[in-house]
Write a protein that binds this DNA or RNA. Structure first.
Length: 562
RNA sequence: GUCCCGAUAGCUCAGCUGGAUAGAGCAACGGACUUCUAAUCCGUAGGUCGGGGGUUCGAAUCCCUCUCGGGACGCCA
């Protein structure tokens, strides 16, 4: 689909490149000198026009002239045919500012209205296969706030990438092998025995959460005490399998309630069973990246940028988690993903260099893996930190959070900060139905719009087609500011997606809502002069589209009334 | 000790691929509801961008260093 703002942008960029080429001699540039990687952005201040470039400043050095002089020369060679540029000025240290024909933003409204739900979609991703792996919480308990933040971040990043034309797959890696499963089995056994009235203690390293008590009770309800008499190994296996299945189901359900659905649930155990880990180890060994020490198999990770070497196979012959993870990442690339994104807790940061190192050792491009590290979440209630301890099983679960603050607030709050910032999650604020709460502020804007359309319908009117009416009557400052920001939407989506920065969308939504509220307070829509009413209905319609699309990307609902 | 992340308005944070006068929300203060939802808006005030050095035409942004907070450094995951 055509996108107006992108078209304008590329037209100006092309003109600038052309100017550099024509001015080469005058600027004293060598024929081989490339055109520098300049920016063409929307200036913060309106007085600087619609677009501004730093190109002249970047050419200062090769041209050995002051930036403003370079700008003069460039401007004298600019061919602006077909760019809608009406005025070019040189300002500040050497910016070249472009002011467009003021009518251009009205064309954008036509585009927004016609593209509707597709407005902002693009093909930047070119159908490239991208995998986003996130949450991947141990299936030994319930989801906590860290998992919840990961879920919101991962899902929003995936939605953004998909919106800009990537072929995205959401994946959950199930850690259903190794120690934690043994611990789960032992913990379940204790709860099972307790449920049958016997004395038993959950091991210190085990899982102490209340949820396993209930799982054990359900197990008893189904199987009674018949596992008491079975060989211990069989009992442990049955208990672990039962708990695992129940936990994964519970995780899947609560994530679905959170608006997060995965395309693939990948089992770690399957890597052991299929021989994928052995094959991966064999390749590393063949390439000379493994050695034996103290009876264990070590990977020379330090050769590939990691701090130290790492054990892949313990002296007891059991592969480490790291070995499985290497095989897993190899599998990802073998499945044809050309970009792999992991959302990890910051406590895994030490794992990043190792993982990239392993990929390099296997012959894959480590830069095709991006790891988004997210910092901790702290919950606040009544101004105090809510203490949590996973060890004792005392923590707020995602399920409880959803019950308390609702999905919309939770989704928004988790992505409103950059992943690498600590997130203070104020439960009272998330619940409050006041202007302090950004989610309600944004949703309220949407509800107000819906209300306008209800009244419009009562009056027997319809939203006119933008291309049939005169939009230039939208001349008020609040109207122009709002339109201008609506036009930015495709740019904002693209940046948020490529920078893996969903918080940009959260802020953008708030800005659009704010501009709309200002417009709404300053102007009436219904009941004004016919031409103006029609144009304003179009503007309100377009605002609704942008708010909806933004909220959709964030996984937040767009209510019709509040 | 080594490494990673952070430090920006009273509070919570944006901005960080170097760009023009550093932004927003909340809190504070002063205003606006015979009108489509006042869950809103308008205005005022608020800053040595943790300290110091460096690179540059230009630094909140890049480099070095120091201070303070959080985290990671296991044949755990």
């Amino acid at each position: 689909m055509g996108c107006l703002i992108a078209g304008l942008r590329t037209a100006i960029e092309r003109a600038l490149r052309g100017a550099v080429d024509k001015a080469r001699d005058e600027l004293g540039l060598a024929p081989g000198d490339p055109v520098p990687d300049f920016t063409l952005e929307v200036p913060r201040e309106k007085q600087f026009g619609d677009f501004a470039t730093n190109l002249a400043m970047l050419l200062t050095k090769p041209a050995r002239r002051p930036p403003r002089q370079v700008a003069e020369i460039l401007v004298s060679h600019l061919d602006l045919a077909g760019t809608k540029v009406q005025e070019v000025t040189i300002a500040g240290p050497g910016f070249i500012n472009f002011s467009l024909d003021p009518l251009w933003i009205y064309d954008a409204l036509v585009e927004i209205q016609e593209q509707k739900d597709d407005y902002g979609r693009s093909k930047i991703g070119g159908g490239k296969k991208v995998q986003v792996e996130f949450v991947s919480a141990n299936p030994t308990g319930l989801l906590h706030m860290g998992n919840a933040r990961g879920a919101a971040l991962g899902d929003t990043i995936a939605a953004l990438l998909s919106f800009v034309g990537f072929d995205v797959s959401r994946e959950y890696y199930i850690n259903d092998a190794g120690h934690q499963i043994e611990n789960l089995a032992l913990s379940m056994e204790a709860r099972y025995l307790q449920a049958l009235g016997r004395d038993a203690e959950v091991p210190e390293e085990g899982y102490h959460g209340r949820d396993l008590v209930e799982t054990a009770q359900r197990f008893v309800a189904e199987h009674g005490d018949r596992y008491l008499k079975m060989p211990r190994e069989e009992r442990l296996k049955a208990l672990a399998q039962y708990a695992l299945r129940e936990k994964i189901t519970a995780i899947r359900e609560v994530l679905a309630a959170f608006g997060v659905e995965f395309d693939v649930w990948f089992s770690e155990q399957s890597l052991h069973d299929s021989g994928a880990i052995d094959r991966t180890l064999a390749i590393l060994r063949e390439r000379g990246h493994l050695y034996e020490k103290d009876g264990a198999q070590w990977f020379r990770a330090s050769r590939f940028g990691a701090e130290k070497d790492e054990v892949l196979v313990r002296s007891n012959g059991v592969p480490t988690y790291y070995a499985a993870d290497i095989a897993y990442h190899k599998d990802k690339f073998d499945r044809g993903f050309s970009w792999v994104i992991n959302i990890w807790g910051a406590d895994h940061h030490g794992h990043v260099a190792r993982m990239k190192g392993a990929l390099e050792a296997l012959g894959y491009d480590p830069d095709a893996l991006d790891v988004v590290l997210m910092q901790l979440v702290r919950l606040y209630r009544s101004g105090e930190i809510v203490r949590m301890s996973k060890r004792t099983g005392e923590y707020i679960t995602l399920e409880e959070l959803l019950k308390e603050v609702g999905r919309d607030a939770a989704r928004y709050f988790f992505v409103m900060r950059g992943a690498d910032s600590h997130l203070d999650f104020d439960l009272d604020l998330a619940k409050s139905r006041t202007n302090e709460n950004p989610v309600f502020y944004i949703q309220y804007a949407h509800a107000r719009i819906a209300s306008i359309f209800r009244q419009m319908a009562e009056r027997g009117k319809k939203v006119p087609a933008a291309r049939d009416i005169d939009l230039t009557v939208l001349n008020d400052a609040t109207e122009r500011d709002l339109i201008r920001r609506l036009v930015d939407f495709p740019d904002e989506v693209a940046r948020a997606a490529l920078e893996l920065a969903p918080q940009r969308m959260a802020h953008y939504a708030h800005e659009v809502a704010s501009l709309f509220h200002s417009f709404y307070n300053a102007n009436r829509v219904l009941g004004v002069e016919k031409e103006l009413e029609e144009a304003r209905l179009v503007l309100v319609d377009c605002t609704r589209t942008v708010l909806r699309n933004t909220l959709y990307l964030l996984g937040v609902s767009a209510p019709e009334r509040m």
